[in-house]
Nucleic acid binder design. Structure first.
Lengths: 182, 182
DNA sequence: GTCAGTTCTGACCGATCGGACAGCTACGGT
DNA sequence: ACCGTAGCTGTCCGATCGGTCAGAACTGAC
């Protein structure tokens, strides 16, 4: 039976996001997604141009959110820049846990593949976390915060409730960057 | 021509390690490895029981090194415990860059798959980094250091020479853990 | 030279992958 | 009642995957 509008579309995206996050992009077949979403594989390819299109649609909101964050901190500098970037990044990482997990995995899998500026966004985030500094210590610490927040928010083990996790991640990240909340 | 002893074996392992690190385990086919190593796919399966066996043999040294590190810091506590664990982990991460990269990716891909205590080793590392503490702040910071060192050492971008990278990673990690070198 | 044993390979296999396509069903406009 | 269109599916396809196997090619001992 034909469901109303794109009810199935949302279900497909949800199933794909969950399965991609658990088994990875390559480790999840279109049949897996179809079975989970309760439809046929052919239905997937009616709603989406292909497997890559599903991935793109899943990653777009998170990517746009990061781009928005970068735009918001573009005019800042010094302490405010670092604080806003860290809190913004932690918030995004927690809100888009699985999407960011996917994004990093996707970078590892398809390194040479162009992804509409994913690497540029990571570079921008790195720059802001480093407080626009080009010095090695700041750059290394920024890299570490980038990975730390990612891994911690993506880990499914419940080390702490989200509010506690958020607060501690922000505090730890600022310590890593040798910066204390003003 | 039949090469002496296991000359080809080493070449296969080297090719597999490099390709796995770039394209991932699932993203690398046996044919890819064979072509890179300059032999036939059937040769791979003469030297190794299967694709999984290659991965296992690649990961074993790094896994054993982590186990050795955990044994070395097992008797320590307090400041010494954290310092030794951090420096040891950073050293291992830099020495086994690609292997640890693989290990994390492997965890993400085959989460439910038993891997001879990989999760136990990660837990042990986490425990030591947290200074055996069970408090949320210490646990979160330990998670962040775990991910930070991994991402930073696995990133192929040369943010800094290895010696500088090592020193800065250790200093930043200790800051993250709210701990300064005594 | 002969022969046993190791190393290596081409050809092949079943399974699974992403995707294409014709056609079925339900529904809203006329 | 008719029909166009959107939603959906069964079926098929070529490509590629990991893995098997019989046998060629080479090596060292005798």
């Amino acid at each position: 039976m034909a469901r109303s509008a794109s009810a199935l579309r949302g279900q497909i995206l949800e199933s794909a996001l969950r399965l991609f996050a658990v088994h990875g992009f390559r480790g999840t077949s279109l049949q897996d997604i179809a079975s989970d979403a309760g439809c046929s594989k052919a239905s997937l390819l009616y709603h989406f141009a292909g497997k890559e299109a599903i991935l793109t649609e899943l990653l777009t909101p998170a990517r746009d959110a990061v781009a928005t964050l970068l735009g918001r901190v573009a005019g800042l500098e010094g302490g405010r820049l670092v604080e806003e970037t860290v809190t913004g990044y932690v918030d995004l990482a927690l809100r888009y846990r699985r999407e960011i997990q996917l994004l990093f995995e996707h970078i590892a899998e398809m390194s040479c593949h162009e992804d509409l500026g994913v690497m540029e966004l990571a570079d921008g985030l790195l720059d802001a976390l480093a407080g626009r500094s080009r010095q090695a210590p700041a750059r290394v610490a920024a890299w570490m915060v980038l990975g730390a927040v990612f891994i911690t928010s993506a880990s499914d083990e419940e080390v702490a409730p989200d509010e506690v996790l958020r607060a501690e991640m922000i505090r730890s990240a600022l310590r890593t960057l040798d910066h204390t909340l003003s």
